[in-house]
C-alpha cells in the first residue's frame, strides 16, 4: 500500500514537473524543473529495486548534464518581451509541425507489433535479483552479452567529444599560451642579475 502511494507520488510529481518544464517562462526555472523530474525518475528506479540506475541517473544527469545545461541557459541573454512578441507569428507553423508529429506517433503506435519471442529474450537477460545485487546483475549483462554494443556506444561518445573539441579548438596567433615546462625550467640566473650601482652612476 505504502509502495503504491509512494509510486503515485513520484509519478504524479514527475509528470507535473515535466509539464512545468515546458510551461515555465524563465528557462532557468525550466532546467530546475527538469532536475526535479530527474529526481522523481530516480525515486521510481529505487521503487523498482534498481538502486544502481537511480544513483547513476542522479550522478550523470543531475550532477553533470543538467549543470552544463544550467551553465549555458544562465548565460543566455534572453529578452522576455521579445520572446512573447514572436509567439503568435510562429504559432501556426509550430502547431502544424506538432500536429504532424502527433499523427506520425499515433500511426506508429497503431501498427505496433511485439514479436512473440521478444518476451523470452528480455526474461533471459535478467539475472535473478535475489541472488546477485543490482550492480552485479547489470555488469553481468553489459560486460558479457552486450560488451561489443557497450564498447561501440563508448566509441561513439568519444568520437562526438573529439569532434566537439576539434570544432572549437583553433590556434589564434595573438594568444600567448602558458608553457608549464618552460616555466619550471627557468632558473634564477636566466632572468635575474644583481649589480652594484654606484651613486649617480646608473646602469649603462
Amino acid at each position: 500500500m505504502i509502495q503504491a502511494a509512494v509510486f503515485y507520488m513520484f509519478a504524479i510529481l514527475a509528470v507535473l514537473g515535466g509539464v512545468a518544464v515546458i510551461s515555465a517562462r524563465n528557462p532557468v526555472h525550466s532546467v530546475l524543473f527538469l532536475i526535479f523530474v530527474f529526481f522523481n525518475a530516480a525515486g521510481l528506479f529505487l521503487l523498482l529495486g534498481a538502486e544502481f540506475l537511480a544513483m547513476v541517473l542522479v550522478v550523470v544527469y543531475v550532477g553533470a548534464v543538467a549543470v552544463l545545461f544550467l551553465f549555458v541557459v544562465m548565460m543566455l541573454d534572453i529578452n522576455f518581451v521579445e520572446l512573447r512578441q514572436g509567439f503568435l507569428t510562429y504559432l501556426p507553423v509550430g502547431a502544424a509541425i506538432g500536429l504532424v508529429l502527433l499523427v506520425e506517433l499515433a500511426s506508429v503506435f497503431a501498427g505496433w507489433h511485439v514479436a512473440p519471442e521478444a518476451k523470452d529474450v528480455i526474461a533471459a537477460a535478467t539475472p535473478d535479483l535475489m541472488q546477485v545485487t543490482n550492480t552485479e546483475a547489470l555488469g553481468q549483462v553489459i560486460y558479457t552479452k552486450y560488451v561489443y554494443l557497450f564498447q561501440a556506444s563508448g566509441m561513439i561518445l568519444l568520437v562526438a567529444m573529439v569532434g566537439a573539441i576539434m570544432l572549437t579548438l583553433r590556434k589564434r596567433p595573438q594568444t600567448k599560451r602558458q608553457s608549464v615546462a618552460a616555466q619550471l625550467a627557468r632558473k634564477k640566473e636566466d632572468t635575474l642579475e644583481i649589480r652594484k650601482v654606484g651613486v649617480g652612476g646608473g646602469i649603462g
Binding site: 538502486e51 544502481f52 544513483m55 547513476v56 542522479v58 550522478v59 543531475v62 550532477g63 553533470a64 545485487t133 543490482n134 550492480t135
Partner: peptide, 13 residues
C-alpha cells in the same frame, strides 16, 4: 548497497 555512488551523487549535487 550503493553507498559510494550515493555519496558521489550527493557531492556532485
Amino acid at each position: 548497497n550503493v553507498g559510494i555512488l550515493y555519496l558521489f551523487a550527493i557531492s556532485s549535487l
